[in-house]
Structure formats: structure tokens, C-alpha cells
């Protein structure tokens, strides 16, 4: 329990230890603590940012969805309109075509009729001539009445 030179030795030891601690122990530990603190803070900030971005993304997604719905509605309406239009046009064309076909058929028929009449006319004339010939063969000379026959033929 005597005070002796241990005192001095202890003081020197004290300073050496404190110096060592100050130089080699404290700064690296403190640095790593601060680094980790920063890392955690960054992580939390990134998490916040991520959440925020998610929110924005979902908002914009619903916005897009809404727009898409609206656009699809518009497209459908336009398509309906177009379909009706096409049908109308088709009807119109069909009608025109039908009229045309009808007209040409009528023309054809008229032509046929005319031709048939022509044929018939010539046949009737021939028949008439043949009949008349048969009747007149006995009593009338066809040559003498030829001008008469021609007049009748022209009348038909």
C-alpha cells in the first residue's frame, strides 16, 4: 500500500493505452458504425422510394387502364358505325346491281321477244304462204298472185 514508482509506470501505461486506442481502435470501429448507419439509412430511403414508385406506377397503371377502356369503347363505336356504313353501302350496291341485272334481263327478254316475233313472223308468213299455197295450188297460180302475197307479207 505504499505510494511508489508504480504510480509513474501506471501513468505511462495509461497514456500509451489511450494513445493506442485513439489511433487504432476507436476510428475504425466508429467508421464502420457510421458506414453501417449510412447503409441502413440508404436502405430505408430506397425502400421508401420504392414504395413511392410503386404507388406512382399503380396510379399510372390504373390511368392507363382507364384510357385503354375509353379507347376500346371508342374503337368499338367506330367499328359499329363502320359496319353499319358498310352494310348500307352493300345494300346500295346490291340494289343497284339488282336493278342493273333486272334491266339487262328485261332487255334480254325484250330482245328475245323481238327475235321470237321476228322468227314467228317469218314462220307465220311461210305458214300462211304454205297454207295459201295448198289452197291455191288447186285453183290459183301462185305466180299470178305473187305480188298480192308480197303485199300481205309486208303488212305483217
Amino acid at each position: 500500500m505504499n505510494i511508489n514508482a508504480t504510480l509513474i509506470g501506471e501513468s505511462i501505461t495509461f497514456f500509451i493505452f489511450v494513445w493506442f486506442c485513439m489511433k487504432y481502435v476507436w476510428p475504425p470501429i466508429m467508421n464502420s458504425l457510421n458506414e453501417r448507419k449510412k447503409l441502413i439509412a440508404d436502405g430505408l430511403a430506397a425502400g421508401d422510394r420504392g414504395r413511392h414508385e410503386l404507388e406512382l406506377a399503380s396510379k399510372s397503371a390504373s390511368q392507363h387502364l382507364l384510357e385503354a377502356k375509353q379507347k376500346s369503347g371508342e374503337i368499338m363505336a367506330a367499328a359499329d358505325k363502320r359496319a353499319a356504313q358498310i352494310i348500307d353501302e352493300a345494300k346500295q350496291t346490291a340494289k343497284v346491281e339488282a336493278d342493273r341485272i333486272f334491266a339487262s334481263a328485261q332487255a334480254n327478254v325484250a330482245q328475245e321477244v323481238a327475235r321470237a316475233r321476228e322468227t314467228l313472223r317469218s314462220h307465220v308468213a311461210e305458214l300462211a304462204v304454205a297454207g295459201a299455197e295448198k289452197i291455191l295450188r288447186r285453183e290459183i297460180n301462185s305466180k299470178t298472185h305473187a305480188d298480192l302475197l308480197t303485199a300481205i307479207q309486208n303488212e305483217l
Binding site: M1, I3, T6, L7, I8, E10, S11, F14, F15, V18
Partner: peptide, 12 residues
């Protein structure tokens, strides 16, 4: 428990 040590540190 040795005053030399405690006084040594206190002097430091």
C-alpha cells in the same frame, strides 16, 4: 485496489 494504479490513472 492499489492506490498507485488509481492515482496513476487520475494523474494521467
Amino acid at each position: 485496489a492499489d492506490p498507485n494504479a488509481t492515482f496513476g490513472m487520475a494523474i494521467g
